[in-house]
Simulated scan of single mutants.
Amino acid sequence: MRTIRLISFGYLHLPTGPDGSPVPPAADRIEDVRDRLRDPAAARDILDLDGLNPRVQDVVLNTPGARELLANLADYATLPAGPRRIAIGCAGGRHRDVDRITGRHAEQERIPRLA
């Protein structure tokens, strides 16, 4: 099995290009979850927590569309000429994307553990 590097980032914290748009990290696939998944920071009592906290992980995993996204990423990762790097970005990089790369869900959801 090859190693796939999963990168967590926040669009609000990226450097900007000459045109002023954010420059995401280099990756074979960049998944922007800002519009795709509900912002977990809006959920009660988790704003000050990060994606490593089990409460945040539960909110993210139960967000409509999250399991489908994971299944799609897992299928993509298993392609014969599949990726070496997948980047997952949200607004701040503290909740949704961090949760997707934690060891707790990596093996459970068939996404390789962070290298």
Rank of each mutant, 00 (worst) to 15 (best):
A43V: 08
R36K: 08
I30T: 14
R34H: 12
R29H: 10
L52I: 00
D32A: 09
V59H: 00
A27F: 06
D32G: 12
L49T: 05
A26E: 14
P22I: 08
Q57C: 03
E31A: 13
L37F: 15
Q57I: 03
R67K: 12
A42K: 13
R29P: 04
Q57V: 01
D48H: 09
L37Y: 14
D58Q: 14
V23Y: 06
R29Y: 09
E31I: 15
P24H: 03
G65Q: 05
A41Q: 04
P24S: 03
L61C: 05
A43E: 09
R34L: 10
V23M: 13
A27D: 09
L47F: 12
D32R: 11
R36L: 15
R29D: 09
A66Q: 02
R67L: 15
R67S: 13
R29A: 15
D58N: 13
N62M: 00
P22W: 03
L52S: 10
S21H: 04
D48G: 13
D50Q: 00
R38H: 15
P24D: 02
Q57K: 10
G51R: 01
P25V: 03
V23T: 12
R44I: 05
Q57F: 05
R67G: 10
D39Q: 10
S21T: 09
A66C: 15
V33H: 11
N62G: 01
P25Y: 07
D45C: 11
I46C: 14
D45T: 01
V33I: 12
V60S: 09
P64I: 02
P25W: 07
L52H: 12
L61P: 00
A42E: 10
A27T: 04
L47E: 02
L52M: 09
L47A: 14
V59Y: 04
P22D: 06
P40D: 06
L52V: 00
V23A: 12
P24I: 01
N53F: 05
D58P: 01
V59T: 04
V56P: 05
P24C: 05
L61T: 04
L49M: 12
A66D: 06
P24E: 02
I46F: 15
L47S: 08
A27C: 03
P25G: 07
P24A: 06
R44K: 11
D48W: 01
D39Y: 08
T63H: 08
I30L: 04
L49Q: 01
R38Y: 13
L61Y: 10
R38D: 13
L49H: 05
P25K: 07
T63Q: 11
D28I: 00
R34M: 10
R29C: 12
A27Q: 09
G65M: 04
V33K: 08
L47Q: 04
R44M: 11
L49R: 06
P64T: 02
G51Y: 04
D35S: 10
R29S: 09
N53R: 02
T63L: 10
P24G: 01
T63C: 11
L52R: 07
A41L: 15
I30H: 04
